[in-house]
């Protein structure tokens, strides 16, 4: 992708190579491909770890995906007494290590978005690990690989910055973290156009 970026903070080498999961929420058409793809990821044992919600089910058909946002200071890992939740060097917050998780479920209570799932039978927590065996080699996570509506994308920081330029309305309502999230996250979220005071043209 060739483009010129004015903002000097984004011209570093890592900005060109480091990719992140990026979500454009209102694109979601509710097909649940991301859920199906998640079940097929290595180590997920046929169970999906992400969610798709009806935004206002009695009124319209809008849906939005929700998954672990891979917090920079993850509440789940902070609250785990067994140190079972490790943070990968890419910033991905991994699922519980099977031999360490003692099944207390603190993480499920701590996560501000209600992401970690718990298996009572196996006494084990499992959560989105950003398909770490893929993303550590810069292969997009399963969900972003299959999303047909570009709701979930795997983009460099440079590309995300360019999106920001395109959507920036100078009303401080563009994307990500604060104030619509509880803390800095590694996954970037573009809030729906309604909130930004604009309607997107497709």
């Amino acid at each position: 992708m060739t483009m010129t970026i004015n903002d000097s903070t984004y011209t570093t080498e890592t900005a060109k190579t480091k990719r992140r999961l990026y979500m454009e929420l209102e694109n979601c058409i509710g097909c649940r491909s991301c859920l199906a793809a998640c079940t097929q990821c290595g180590g997920h044992e046929q169970r999906n770890r992400n969610y798709v919600y009806d935004v206002n089910p009695l009124v319209n058909r809008q849906t939005m995906p929700l998954m672990c946002l891979h917090c920079v200071d993850p509440a789940c890992a902070r609250s785990c007494p067994a140190q079972a939740i490790q943070i990968h060097e890419t910033g991905a917050v991994l699922s519980a290590l099977v031999e360490k998780c003692i099944g207390c479920q603190n993480c499920t209570i701590a996560c501000p978005y209600g992401i970690p799932k718990f298996d009572e039978e196996e006494n084990l927590m499992y959560k989105c690990d950003l398909c770490i065996d893929r993303t550590k080699d810069d292969i997009p996570p399963m969900c972003a690989s299959v999303c047909p509506s570009n709701t979930l994308q795997w983009l460099t920081e440079e590309e995300i910055a360019e999106k920001q330029n395109r959507h920036d309305l100078d009303n401080e309502k563009w994307v990500t973290s604060m104030p619509y999230l509880e803390g800095e996250t590694n996954v970037k979220v573009n809030l729906p156009g309604i909130l930004q005071g604009t309607v997107k043209l497709f």
Binding site: Y53, D54, V55, N56, C111, P192
Partner: peptide, 16 residues
């Protein structure tokens, strides 16, 4: 589930 819906509500502006 309510915590997840609450987040969707924060994203969308409608009280999911």
């Amino acid at each position: 589930p309510c915590r997840r819906k609450y987040r969707i509500a924060r994203f969308s502006g409608s009280p999911t």
